[in-house]
Simulated assay, not measured.
Amino acid sequence: MRRRAVVFVALALALLTAAVGIWLAVAAAARDTDAAPPVSVSPSASAAPVTADDYCYVEAMIYYRVKEQELAETLLRKQGIEAGASGFATGIAARDEDELEDLRAWYLSWADARPAEPPTDGPCGGHGSDHAQMPGMPSWSALQGFAAAEHPDAEKRFAEILHAQNAGMIALVTLILEGDPHPAVAESAEAVLQQAEADQETLQGIIDAVP
């Protein structure tokens, strides 16, 4: 019973960390515009209209990246993690922070394009008010299992959760690119797609390496 209580507390803290992280990822720039430099786009791209789908992409990617960071940090707090998995998790934390700088800037400068109500169709249809229903987001039971897991099961659960999340992210950016995105969004989405597809191979390797 004591172990179940500890696991529950650990999971609750992990989820709270993710929620706070997502809020901070967005609110940090709102408090201090110097903390998030302007997005570097060409003059023609700057003049391009920003749509609700463009803004949806920004919000969704903030959610995906902060959740990805939180999962990586949870793995790195565990003992005896295999070097390949820990190295991948360490790389995620740094890589995502760089991307979040641009996303925070877009979130502020494109606020007028934010829809008044969560969309029911289009790329973000059915995501909910906070994108928690996005494709690939982990279930409570999956997070609970990961929070309680130890080496080598922890690596496998981590990779499985991120593999599913990446698949959802690939589906989202594919829909975005099939539309008529803002030039900056198109450039970002192409980079996200390439990175996610490469990460899938790495994550599958981590999964396959666990007996």
Rank of each mutant, 00 (worst) to 15 (best):
R4W: 03
V7N: 13
F8E: 11
V9R: 09
L13I: 14
L16I: 12
A18K: 11
A19H: 06
I22R: 04
L24Q: 02
A25T: 07
R31L: 11
R31D: 09
T33M: 08
P37C: 01
P38R: 00
P43M: 03
A45I: 06
S46F: 06
A48W: 07
P49V: 08
T51Y: 02
A52P: 03
A60S: 13
I62D: 03
Y63H: 14
Y64C: 01
E70N: 13
L76G: 01
L76F: 05
Q79L: 12
Q79H: 12
A83E: 15
S86D: 04
S86T: 01
T90K: 08
G91D: 13
I92W: 10
A94N: 12
D102T: 12
D102K: 10
Y107R: 11
L108M: 08
R114T: 13
P115D: 04
P115H: 14
G126E: 06
H127S: 05
H127C: 07
S129A: 15
Q133P: 02
M134Y: 02
P135H: 12
P138N: 03
A142N: 08
L143W: 14
Q144P: 02
A148H: 13
A149P: 09
P152S: 03
D153S: 13
D153V: 09
A154I: 00
E155Q: 10
E155T: 05
I161M: 03
I161Q: 02
A167D: 15
I170S: 10
V173F: 05
G179N: 04
D180A: 13
A186E: 14
S188V: 00
E190C: 01
A191C: 06
Q195E: 08
Q195N: 10
A196S: 14
A196P: 05
A196E: 10
D199R: 03
D199C: 01
Q200H: 06
Q204N: 12
I206E: 09
I206L: 15
